Simulated assay, not measured.
Amino acid sequence: MKKLYLKDIAKNLNVSTTAVSLVLNNKGDENKISQDTQQKILEYAKRHNYVANSLARGLSRGKSETIGLIIPNISDDHYAKIAGHIERKAKEYGYVVMYASSNKDPKNEAKLIQSMINRQVDGLILASTQHNSEDIELLKDNKLPFVLIDRLYPEIDTNYVVVDNFEGVQKATKHLLNLGRRKIGFVTLKPGLEAMRQRLLGYQEALKEFNIDPSDALVKELSNVDYKDEIKEALGELVRFPNSVDSIIFSTHYLTSLGLRELRRLNIKVPHEVAIVSFDELGAFDLVDPPITSIKQPGADIGDFSVDILMDEIQGNESGINKTRMLKPSLIIRKSCGAL
Protein backbone atom coordinates (compact mmCIF):
# COMPACT_ATOMS: atom_id res chain seq x y z
CA MET A 1 0.00 0.00 0.00
CA LYS A 2 1.34 3.41 -0.98
CA LYS A 3 2.19 5.66 1.96
CA LEU A 4 -0.16 8.62 2.31
CA TYR A 5 1.35 12.04 2.92
CA LEU A 6 -0.18 15.34 4.07
CA LYS A 7 0.19 16.75 0.56
CA ASP A 8 -1.83 13.83 -0.84
CA ILE A 9 -4.73 14.55 1.50
CA ALA A 10 -4.55 18.24 0.69
CA LYS A 11 -4.54 17.62 -3.07
CA ASN A 12 -7.46 15.18 -2.99
CA LEU A 13 -9.60 17.46 -0.83
CA ASN A 14 -8.50 20.70 -2.52
CA VAL A 15 -7.31 22.26 0.72
CA SER A 16 -3.91 23.52 1.86
CA THR A 17 -1.28 21.23 3.38
CA THR A 18 -1.17 23.61 6.35
CA ALA A 19 -4.88 23.12 6.97
CA VAL A 20 -4.46 19.34 6.90
CA SER A 21 -1.56 19.52 9.35
CA LEU A 22 -3.45 21.76 11.75
CA VAL A 23 -6.54 19.56 11.76
CA LEU A 24 -4.61 16.32 12.26
CA ASN A 25 -2.77 17.95 15.19
CA ASN A 26 -6.08 19.01 16.82
CA LYS A 27 -5.53 22.69 16.09
CA GLY A 28 -8.37 23.22 13.63
CA ASP A 29 -10.67 25.15 15.97
CA GLU A 30 -8.03 27.55 17.23
CA ASN A 31 -7.06 28.33 13.64
CA LYS A 32 -10.71 28.90 12.62
CA ILE A 33 -10.91 26.02 10.14
CA SER A 34 -14.56 25.20 9.42
CA GLN A 35 -16.13 22.15 11.00
CA ASP A 36 -17.05 20.85 7.57
CA THR A 37 -13.42 21.01 6.37
CA GLN A 38 -12.16 19.44 9.58
CA GLN A 39 -14.63 16.58 9.28
CA LYS A 40 -13.68 15.94 5.64
CA ILE A 41 -9.96 15.83 6.51
CA LEU A 42 -10.42 13.54 9.50
CA GLU A 43 -12.70 11.14 7.65
CA TYR A 44 -10.38 11.00 4.64
CA ALA A 45 -7.33 10.33 6.86
CA LYS A 46 -9.14 7.59 8.75
CA ARG A 47 -10.50 5.99 5.59
CA HIS A 48 -7.04 5.82 4.04
CA ASN A 49 -5.23 4.73 7.25
CA TYR A 50 -3.07 7.83 7.46
CA VAL A 51 -0.23 7.48 10.01
CA ALA A 52 1.44 10.66 11.19
CA ASN A 53 5.20 10.94 10.90
CA SER A 54 5.96 11.59 14.55
CA LEU A 55 9.67 12.13 13.85
CA ALA A 56 8.98 14.86 11.33
CA ARG A 57 6.37 16.39 13.61
CA GLY A 58 8.81 16.37 16.50
CA LEU A 59 11.65 17.86 14.47
CA SER A 60 9.36 20.70 13.40
CA ARG A 61 9.19 21.57 17.09
CA GLY A 62 12.94 21.11 17.54
CA LYS A 63 12.54 17.65 19.11
CA SER A 64 12.76 14.14 17.71
CA GLU A 65 10.72 12.68 20.61
CA THR A 66 13.24 9.84 20.61
CA ILE A 67 15.82 8.81 23.17
CA GLY A 68 18.72 6.48 22.52
CA LEU A 69 19.58 3.51 24.74
CA ILE A 70 22.98 1.84 24.43
CA ILE A 71 23.54 -1.26 26.55
CA PRO A 72 26.11 -4.08 26.44
CA ASN A 73 23.69 -6.75 25.26
CA ILE A 74 19.93 -6.51 24.79
CA SER A 75 19.62 -10.30 25.17
CA ASP A 76 21.14 -10.17 28.66
CA ASP A 77 18.33 -10.75 31.17
CA HIS A 78 19.43 -7.87 33.40
CA TYR A 79 19.58 -5.30 30.61
CA ALA A 80 16.47 -6.61 28.87
CA LYS A 81 14.48 -5.93 32.05
CA ILE A 82 15.93 -2.44 32.43
CA ALA A 83 15.27 -1.68 28.75
CA GLY A 84 11.65 -2.73 29.18
CA HIS A 85 11.20 -0.37 32.13
CA ILE A 86 12.92 2.48 30.23
CA GLU A 87 10.63 1.96 27.25
CA ARG A 88 7.54 1.96 29.50
CA LYS A 89 8.61 5.12 31.33
CA ALA A 90 9.63 6.93 28.13
CA LYS A 91 6.20 6.22 26.67
CA GLU A 92 4.63 8.11 29.58
CA TYR A 93 6.52 11.18 28.36
CA GLY A 94 5.45 10.59 24.75
CA TYR A 95 8.88 9.33 23.73
CA VAL A 96 10.06 6.25 21.89
CA VAL A 97 13.32 4.42 22.56
CA MET A 98 15.96 3.57 19.96
CA TYR A 99 17.94 0.50 21.12
CA ALA A 100 21.51 -0.51 20.37
CA SER A 101 23.91 -3.11 21.82
CA SER A 102 27.62 -2.35 22.13
CA ASN A 103 28.50 -6.02 22.74
CA LYS A 104 30.96 -4.73 25.36
CA ASP A 105 33.17 -3.33 22.56
CA PRO A 106 34.43 0.23 23.24
CA LYS A 107 34.94 0.93 19.52
CA ASN A 108 31.43 -0.21 18.72
CA GLU A 109 30.09 1.86 21.60
CA ALA A 110 31.85 4.97 20.26
CA LYS A 111 30.27 4.42 16.82
CA LEU A 112 26.85 3.95 18.38
CA ILE A 113 27.16 7.18 20.37
CA GLN A 114 27.99 9.07 17.19
CA SER A 115 25.14 7.33 15.38
CA MET A 116 22.69 8.41 18.06
CA ILE A 117 23.93 12.00 17.73
CA ASN A 118 23.55 11.82 13.94
CA ARG A 119 20.00 10.48 14.32
CA GLN A 120 19.20 13.55 16.40
CA VAL A 121 17.95 11.75 19.50
CA ASP A 122 16.88 14.19 22.19
CA GLY A 123 18.87 12.34 24.85
CA LEU A 124 20.81 9.20 25.59
CA ILE A 125 20.83 6.54 28.31
CA LEU A 126 24.06 4.58 28.33
CA ALA A 127 25.44 1.52 30.13
CA SER A 128 29.02 2.14 29.10
CA THR A 129 32.00 -0.15 28.68
CA GLN A 130 33.88 2.42 30.82
CA HIS A 131 36.57 2.69 28.14
CA ASN A 132 35.19 5.70 26.28
CA SER A 133 35.86 8.70 28.48
CA GLU A 134 36.56 10.87 25.41
CA ASP A 135 33.12 10.13 24.00
CA ILE A 136 31.49 10.88 27.34
CA GLU A 137 33.28 14.23 27.36
CA LEU A 138 32.09 14.74 23.77
CA LEU A 139 28.49 14.27 24.88
CA LYS A 140 29.03 16.89 27.57
CA ASP A 141 30.67 19.31 25.11
CA ASN A 142 27.78 18.86 22.66
CA LYS A 143 25.34 19.45 25.53
CA LEU A 144 23.37 16.35 24.58
CA PRO A 145 21.37 15.26 27.64
CA PHE A 146 22.52 11.84 28.82
CA VAL A 147 22.40 9.55 31.84
CA LEU A 148 24.79 6.74 32.67
CA ILE A 149 23.25 3.60 34.14
CA ASP A 150 24.82 0.58 35.84
CA ARG A 151 28.34 1.83 35.09
CA LEU A 152 29.90 5.24 35.60
CA TYR A 153 33.14 7.13 35.14
CA PRO A 154 34.27 8.12 38.66
CA GLU A 155 36.56 10.83 37.26
CA ILE A 156 33.83 12.51 35.16
CA ASP A 157 30.87 14.43 36.62
CA THR A 158 27.71 13.15 34.93
CA ASN A 159 24.12 12.23 35.57
CA TYR A 160 23.95 8.60 36.62
CA VAL A 161 21.77 5.90 38.15
CA VAL A 162 23.69 3.01 39.67
CA VAL A 163 23.27 0.29 42.28
CA ASP A 164 25.30 0.17 45.49
CA ASN A 165 27.41 -2.81 44.41
CA PHE A 166 29.62 -2.58 47.50
CA GLU A 167 26.73 -2.84 49.95
CA GLY A 168 25.05 -5.62 47.98
CA VAL A 169 28.01 -8.00 48.14
CA GLN A 170 28.93 -6.93 51.66
CA LYS A 171 25.43 -7.85 52.84
CA ALA A 172 25.55 -11.22 51.06
CA THR A 173 28.99 -12.07 52.45
CA LYS A 174 27.93 -11.19 55.98
CA HIS A 175 24.86 -13.39 55.56
CA LEU A 176 27.10 -16.35 54.72
CA LEU A 177 29.39 -15.55 57.64
CA ASN A 178 26.42 -15.40 60.02
CA LEU A 179 25.43 -18.87 58.81
CA GLY A 180 28.83 -20.16 59.91
CA ARG A 181 30.51 -20.13 56.50
CA ARG A 182 34.15 -19.08 56.76
CA LYS A 183 35.87 -20.14 53.53
CA ILE A 184 33.99 -18.00 51.03
CA GLY A 185 35.16 -17.97 47.43
CA PHE A 186 34.50 -15.04 45.11
CA VAL A 187 34.24 -15.57 41.35
CA THR A 188 34.26 -12.36 39.34
CA LEU A 189 35.59 -10.64 36.23
CA LYS A 190 38.96 -8.95 35.96
CA PRO A 191 39.09 -5.27 36.93
CA GLY A 192 37.83 -2.82 34.34
CA LEU A 193 34.32 -2.03 35.44
CA GLU A 194 33.82 0.07 38.55
CA ALA A 195 30.87 -2.16 39.47
CA MET A 196 33.12 -5.24 39.62
CA ARG A 197 35.69 -3.40 41.70
CA GLN A 198 33.04 -2.32 44.20
CA ARG A 199 31.65 -5.85 44.47
CA LEU A 200 35.09 -7.23 45.28
CA LEU A 201 35.64 -4.48 47.86
CA GLY A 202 32.30 -5.30 49.50
CA TYR A 203 33.31 -8.96 49.81
CA GLN A 204 36.70 -8.08 51.32
CA GLU A 205 35.27 -5.56 53.77
CA ALA A 206 32.72 -8.04 55.12
CA LEU A 207 35.49 -10.59 55.80
CA LYS A 208 37.52 -7.95 57.65
CA GLU A 209 34.52 -7.11 59.84
CA PHE A 210 34.56 -10.77 60.96
CA ASN A 211 38.34 -10.63 61.53
CA ILE A 212 39.06 -12.82 58.51
CA ASP A 213 41.97 -11.84 56.28
CA PRO A 214 40.87 -11.88 52.63
CA SER A 215 42.80 -14.52 50.70
CA ASP A 216 43.82 -13.97 47.08
CA ALA A 217 43.56 -17.73 46.59
CA LEU A 218 39.80 -17.55 47.18
CA VAL A 219 39.24 -14.83 44.59
CA LYS A 220 39.04 -15.93 40.96
CA GLU A 221 39.08 -13.11 38.42
CA LEU A 222 38.10 -14.24 34.93
CA SER A 223 38.58 -12.42 31.66
CA ASN A 224 35.56 -10.87 29.93
CA VAL A 225 36.37 -12.84 26.78
CA ASP A 226 37.30 -16.34 28.01
CA TYR A 227 35.29 -16.65 31.22
CA LYS A 228 33.29 -19.61 29.90
CA ASP A 229 36.48 -21.66 29.66
CA GLU A 230 38.26 -20.18 32.68
CA ILE A 231 35.41 -20.84 35.11
CA LYS A 232 36.05 -24.61 34.97
CA GLU A 233 39.61 -24.20 36.18
CA ALA A 234 38.62 -21.57 38.75
CA LEU A 235 35.93 -23.72 40.36
CA GLY A 236 38.15 -26.79 40.23
CA GLU A 237 40.69 -24.92 42.35
CA LEU A 238 38.07 -23.58 44.78
CA VAL A 239 36.53 -26.98 45.56
CA ARG A 240 39.75 -29.03 45.55
CA PHE A 241 40.18 -31.11 48.70
CA PRO A 242 41.47 -30.52 51.39
CA ASN A 243 41.29 -26.72 51.03
CA SER A 244 37.89 -26.45 49.40
CA VAL A 245 35.60 -23.48 50.04
CA ASP A 246 32.30 -23.84 51.88
CA SER A 247 30.54 -21.15 49.81
CA ILE A 248 30.92 -19.12 46.61
CA ILE A 249 29.66 -15.68 45.62
CA PHE A 250 29.39 -15.09 41.88
CA SER A 251 29.61 -11.44 40.87
CA THR A 252 27.17 -11.75 37.93
CA HIS A 253 24.14 -13.87 37.14
CA TYR A 254 25.72 -15.37 34.03
CA LEU A 255 28.79 -16.48 36.00
CA THR A 256 26.36 -18.07 38.47
CA SER A 257 24.62 -19.95 35.69
CA LEU A 258 27.91 -21.30 34.33
CA GLY A 259 29.15 -22.04 37.85
CA LEU A 260 26.09 -24.07 38.77
CA ARG A 261 26.50 -26.16 35.65
CA GLU A 262 30.16 -26.83 36.47
CA LEU A 263 29.44 -27.66 40.14
CA ARG A 264 26.82 -30.13 38.99
CA ARG A 265 29.36 -31.71 36.66
CA LEU A 266 31.78 -32.01 39.59
CA ASN A 267 29.01 -33.59 41.69
CA ILE A 268 29.25 -30.82 44.31
CA LYS A 269 26.07 -30.65 46.37
CA VAL A 270 24.51 -27.22 46.96
CA PRO A 271 24.19 -26.04 49.72
CA HIS A 272 25.41 -29.06 51.75
CA GLU A 273 28.97 -28.84 50.45
CA VAL A 274 29.05 -25.36 48.94
CA ALA A 275 26.54 -22.54 49.46
CA ILE A 276 25.86 -20.24 46.50
CA VAL A 277 25.01 -16.54 46.16
CA SER A 278 24.53 -14.71 42.87
CA PHE A 279 24.80 -10.99 42.22
CA ASP A 280 21.61 -10.36 40.27
CA GLU A 281 19.42 -13.17 39.12
CA LEU A 282 17.82 -15.02 36.26
CA GLY A 283 14.13 -15.79 36.17
CA ALA A 284 14.83 -19.48 36.79
CA PHE A 285 16.85 -18.95 39.98
CA ASP A 286 13.75 -19.42 42.13
CA LEU A 287 12.77 -22.56 40.21
CA VAL A 288 15.99 -24.60 40.22
CA ASP A 289 16.76 -27.06 43.01
CA PRO A 290 17.82 -25.57 45.32
CA PRO A 291 16.56 -22.03 44.55
CA ILE A 292 19.46 -19.57 44.38
CA THR A 293 20.03 -16.78 46.89
CA SER A 294 20.47 -13.58 44.90
CA ILE A 295 21.43 -9.95 45.27
CA LYS A 296 18.56 -8.41 43.34
CA GLN A 297 18.99 -5.13 41.48
CA PRO A 298 15.98 -2.76 41.29
CA GLY A 299 15.54 -2.79 37.51
CA ALA A 300 12.28 -0.82 37.56
CA ASP A 301 13.85 1.97 39.62
CA ILE A 302 16.91 2.09 37.36
CA GLY A 303 14.62 2.52 34.36
CA ASP A 304 12.28 5.03 35.96
CA PHE A 305 14.92 7.28 37.53
CA SER A 306 17.13 7.31 34.42
CA VAL A 307 14.23 8.44 32.23
CA ASP A 308 13.02 11.02 34.77
CA ILE A 309 16.51 12.53 35.02
CA LEU A 310 16.94 12.53 31.25
CA MET A 311 13.57 14.21 30.68
CA ASP A 312 14.45 16.92 33.19
CA GLU A 313 17.49 17.69 31.05
CA ILE A 314 15.62 17.51 27.75
CA GLN A 315 12.84 19.76 29.02
CA GLY A 316 15.32 22.32 30.29
CA ASN A 317 14.74 21.69 33.98
CA GLU A 318 18.42 21.12 34.70
CA SER A 319 19.78 23.01 37.67
CA GLY A 320 23.42 22.94 36.64
CA ILE A 321 24.10 20.16 39.15
CA ASN A 322 24.38 16.58 37.96
CA LYS A 323 21.56 14.36 39.14
CA THR A 324 22.64 11.04 40.63
CA ARG A 325 20.95 8.04 42.22
CA MET A 326 22.64 5.27 44.21
CA LEU A 327 20.02 2.54 44.57
CA LYS A 328 20.01 -0.20 47.18
CA PRO A 329 19.96 -3.84 46.06
CA SER A 330 18.07 -6.40 48.13
CA LEU A 331 19.22 -9.82 49.30
CA ILE A 332 16.71 -12.48 48.30
CA ILE A 333 17.45 -15.43 50.59
CA ARG A 334 16.70 -18.87 49.19
CA LYS A 335 17.78 -22.44 49.93
CA SER A 336 21.20 -22.31 48.21
CA CYS A 337 22.57 -20.75 51.44
CA GLY A 338 21.97 -23.38 54.06
CA ALA A 339 23.62 -23.02 57.47
CA LEU A 340 26.58 -25.24 58.29
Results as ranks from 00 to 15, higher is better:
27 K>T: 08
249 I>S: 04
162 V>K: 07
291 P>G: 04
143 K>C: 07
220 K>Y: 00
273 E>G: 02
303 G>R: 02
141 D>K: 15
212 I>Q: 09
2 K>P: 09
45 A>F: 03
68 G>L: 00
222 L>Y: 01
218 L>C: 06
126 L>A: 05
288 V>E: 07
303 G>V: 02
77 D>R: 12
70 I>R: 01
188 T>A: 12
45 A>I: 08
36 D>Q: 15
20 V>K: 08
93 Y>W: 12
149 I>E: 01
127 A>N: 06
89 K>V: 13
208 K>H: 02
217 A>P: 00
45 A>N: 03
250 F>R: 04
81 K>N: 12
189 L>K: 01
278 S>R: 04
35 Q>S: 14
54 S>E: 13
120 Q>G: 01
189 L>Y: 08
190 K>A: 13
304 D>W: 05
183 K>Q: 09
10 A>Y: 09
86 I>S: 04
237 E>H: 11
268 I>C: 12
57 R>L: 14
22 L>P: 06
339 A>N: 14
10 A>R: 10
133 S>H: 04
315 Q>V: 05
209 E>P: 01
250 F>T: 05
195 A>V: 12
66 T>G: 01
303 G>P: 00
85 H>Y: 14
70 I>Q: 04
298 P>E: 05
158 T>G: 01
95 Y>I: 12
235 L>C: 11
224 N>Q: 13
94 G>L: 07
213 D>I: 15
322 N>H: 15
267 N>M: 11
135 D>I: 00
105 D>H: 00
28 G>Q: 08
260 L>D: 02
334 R>A: 08
307 V>F: 10
269 K>V: 14
56 A>F: 07
206 A>E: 07
192 G>V: 00
208 K>G: 03
166 F>I: 11
229 D>H: 12
109 E>P: 00
40 K>E: 08
119 R>W: 11
38 Q>E: 12
197 R>S: 12
5 Y>A: 13
160 Y>Q: 03
24 L>P: 10
42 L>E: 10
126 L>Q: 07
137 E>Y: 05
303 G>D: 03
38 Q>K: 15
268 I>E: 10
120 Q>Y: 07
151 R>T: 02
44 Y>N: 03
319 S>Q: 11
335 K>W: 05
200 L>D: 00
271 P>T: 04
41 I>W: 01
220 K>D: 01
249 I>W: 04
81 K>T: 14
33 I>P: 11
147 V>R: 03
63 K>T: 11
235 L>A: 09
148 L>N: 09
115 S>D: 06
184 I>Q: 06
66 T>L: 14
220 K>V: 04
258 L>K: 11
88 R>V: 10
255 L>S: 02
328 K>D: 13
41 I>F: 01
293 T>E: 03
212 I>Y: 06
285 F>N: 01
322 N>Q: 13
121 V>W: 04
171 K>E: 12
318 E>T: 14
